[in-house]
Simulated assay, not measured.
Amino acid sequence: MDRNERLLHASSFGTAAAAYAEHRPDHPHAAANWALEPAPGPRVLDLGAGTGKLTATLVALGVDVIAVEPDPAMLTELRHSLPAVRALPGSAEAIPLPDASVDAVLAGNAMHWFDMAVAGPEIARVLAPGGVLAGLWNVMDDHVEWVAELERISGGAAIGPRDTSAGWRAQTADMHLPRTGEAPRFGSPEQAEFPHAQRRTADSLVATLATRAGMLVMPDQERTAELSRIRAFLASRPETAHGEFALPLLCGVLRVRRL
């Protein structure tokens, strides 16, 4: 994905902010705890916080969290659902915080949208020495047969390369973490996965997939056809055709420490 295409996809979520808040899954506490394990203190920045999915998990864990989000509609949803959280407009490339002001920077389903050549130095700037940078990705567990088949029939628009357990590790392992000359800003990355699930119906799973960037940027007619094909598939499967079911998920976590 080139820079213009990435910007188009990254800026698409505000058009579906309310649906995003309603349908996207939360992040499991175990995943956030693992991400924060090496952090030297309790001050956490949720960067690219969206509607506050990860922010809510961090609040529940009792850390001192600040949220930063560039999209006004997403930020409005976050402030509505979490009015006690300090939530600021800003981006990974221009973080509105002082130097060394947080002990960890976490990003929930967002880090792949950052321009790390610019965001990396900014993140390093706001992190205290020894601080943690971690990305968390909720992905569908394609070890489950019907999920793997859904991935195949979706053609990549609703379920992209980072949206399954088979894809997120490869997609994040080579994520560019900038250096200053020959000096690295961050240490070696570590990865872990945490299984969880989301209660869905066929309709609510379709609504969830409709909030993916690949779907949001589609022409209306093409998106309608894609979602109809997914709905027909779900109606054909015994696991998903009748009432509620557990959508199997993994939360993949990539963490590095600020040197």
Rank of each mutant, 00 (worst) to 15 (best):
V126F: 14
H112N: 06
D99G: 01
P98D: 15
A119Y: 10
E122C: 01
L133Y: 15
P98Y: 08
F114P: 03
V126P: 13
V139D: 03
V132H: 09
M111P: 00
E122I: 09
L133R: 00
V102S: 10
V139W: 12
R125N: 11
H112V: 04
D103C: 04
P129S: 12
A119V: 05
V102A: 04
A117H: 13
R125W: 14
G130P: 02
V132F: 13
A110Y: 13
V126A: 10
M140N: 10
D115H: 01
I123E: 03
M111Q: 12
D141N: 04
A100L: 05
V118N: 03
D99H: 11
G108C: 05
M111I: 15
I123F: 06
E122D: 05
F114K: 00
P121M: 10
L127G: 01
D141K: 01
N109E: 13
A128G: 07
V105C: 03
A100P: 01
L133K: 01
A128S: 15
A119H: 08
P129E: 09
L136Q: 08
A110H: 08
P129K: 03
M111Y: 07
S101W: 07
N109F: 10
A124P: 01
W137E: 12
N138S: 14
V132E: 07
V102L: 03
V105P: 03
W113I: 01
P121W: 13
W137P: 00
L136W: 09
V102D: 08
G130I: 06
G130K: 02
V118D: 15
A134K: 02
M140H: 12
P98K: 00
G131R: 07
W137R: 04
W137T: 10
V132L: 03
F114H: 13
N109M: 04
H112L: 11
W137M: 11
D141E: 08
W137Q: 11
A110G: 07
A119L: 07
V126D: 14
L136D: 08
V118S: 11
I123V: 15
S101R: 00
